[in-house]
């Protein structure tokens, strides 16, 4: 029996599928609790439904991207393990890197089915699990304290502190997100300008061009929303912009 047949055996599907199912149930429990408490404290049910619709539409395209990560890893690690990793804790951009690095650490040159052994697989699987588990570990030990401190910071201890910080929480969150987006857009600029040698303008320009198309598409969606007072468009504008930008990537890539 080849190693890939072993890694794709029904028993592995059962083990990994069971964990995925358990995590799906956790999501359902959290969603139901949030919905119920929202109703109980008088939140607008329409808002909660819009959240569910917007999040579901938003998640489809990135999920297909994540599925590609499963396919990419399935050639060397079988299908069940990458399926589990990318459904639970894992992240598309980390998982492949960690798997590659873990493979090297156990003495395999890159991820390849021809060199994979059962022992190497179980060691890589353990490394993949341990390397990216820390967010969950920190949550267990400090999420309560951390969120309580954040709330205390928002309410402030004195009148002066309260007045200085009042209304800044939302701006700070927006600013943090702007910082996050800026770091990534900046990396696309750097990749293009200096990716092929400093100031050579010979690096990969596709991510920057795709980001620009995504931004343009979003600008059109926002204009339509404002012009026709169509607030519903917000639920689909990100997914729509991504779809347009990803389609553009197919055509732009031919120009490279």
């Amino acid at each position: 029996m080849s190693i890939l047949s072993q890694l794709n055996s029904p028993v592995l599907y059962l083990i990994c599928g069971g964990i995925v199912l358990a995590v799906a149930l956790m999501c359902v429990v959290f969603a139901l609790r949030a919905y119920r408490i929202g109703r109980a404290i008088g939140m607008d049910v329409t808002k909660m439904r819009r959240t569910v619709v917007a999040s579901a539409t938003f998640a489809v395209l990135p999920s297909v991207g994540i599925l590609l990560g499963v396919i990419a890893l399935s050639g060397s690690l079988g299908t069940p393990w990458p399926w589990l990793r990318l459904s639970v804790i894992g992240a598309l951009h980390y998982e492949t890197q960690v798997a590659e690095a873990a493979a090297e650490a156990v003495g395999i040159h890159g991820l390849s089915a021809s060199q994979m052994t059962a022992k190497a697989f179980s060691t890589i699987a353990l490394l993949m699990s341990v390397c990216i588990m820390w967010g969950m570990v920190f949550s267990i030990f400090s999420c309560k304290r951390y969120t309580s401190r954040l709330s205390a910071g928002k309410s402030g201890s004195g009148e002066k502190k309260r007045s200085a910080f009042s209304g800044f929480g939302d701006t700070a969150m927006t600013a943090m997100f702007i910082g996050l987006v800026s770091a990534y857009i900046g990396s696309y600029v750097g990749t293009f300008v200096s990716g092929g040698g400093r100031f050579a303008f010979a690096g990969d320009w596709l991510p920057l061009a795709v980001a620009a198309v995504g931004a343009l598409a979003m600008w059109v969606f926002l204009k339509i929303r404002d012009r026709f007072d169509a607030a519903w468009i917000d639920s689909f504008s990100i997914a729509g912009s991504m779809l347009i930008a990803m389609t553009a990537a197919i055509f732009l890539a031919r120009l490279r």
Partner: peptide
């Protein structure tokens, strides 16, 4: 289709940048 799926994150952050830079340009 590979270029499309290789560029999910740039597509996402391009759209998000437009949404958040608009109206917050002094911060961005």
């Amino acid at each position: 289709l590979q270029p499309a799926f290789d560029n999910v994150v740039p597509a996402l952050f391009g759209a998000m940048a437009c949404k958040y830079y608009r109206g917050n340009f002094k911060i961005a």
